Amino acid sequence: MATRDRRLAEFDGAGEPPPGLPVEVLCEDHSGTYQLPFACRYVEGRWQNHEAGIAVEATVIGWRLPRVKHSGVA
């Protein structure tokens, strides 16, 4: 359970994200918790893939603003 709690703490979004804003989501199923590999948005009470507009068929338990990815180039 510590892993679930630690992951959930990293997804610090409270309530619903602003409309149309792409965010990272944490999902949960019988196997555990996992982050979806694509950005999602919350539209009219439902989570959708931000790019494709397809409904997310997973239980979303947390969200956060996208993290900045560093390229490693100086």
Rank of each mutant, 00 (worst) to 15 (best):
K69G: 09
A39F: 15
A52Y: 10
R46C: 12
G45A: 04
D29P: 07
Y34M: 06
D12G: 11
L65M: 12
V56S: 07
L36R: 09
G20P: 03
M1S: 15
G53A: 07
H70C: 09
G72M: 06
W47F: 01
P18G: 00
W47E: 05
A55Q: 14
S31D: 14
R4A: 11
L8D: 00
G45C: 09
P18M: 04
R67F: 02
H70M: 10
V25N: 01
H30T: 12
V60F: 06
V60W: 06
T33F: 08
M1F: 13
W47I: 00
G15Y: 01
W63G: 04
M1A: 12
E57T: 13
T3D: 14
E44R: 14
T59Q: 14
V56T: 05
E57Q: 15
L65V: 13
A55M: 14
A39Y: 15
P37R: 08
A2G: 09
A55N: 13
R64A: 07
S71K: 07
A39N: 08
A52V: 04
E44W: 09
I61T: 07
G62R: 04
Q35I: 05
H30A: 14
V60Y: 02
H50M: 08
V73G: 04
T33E: 12
P66K: 02
F11H: 02
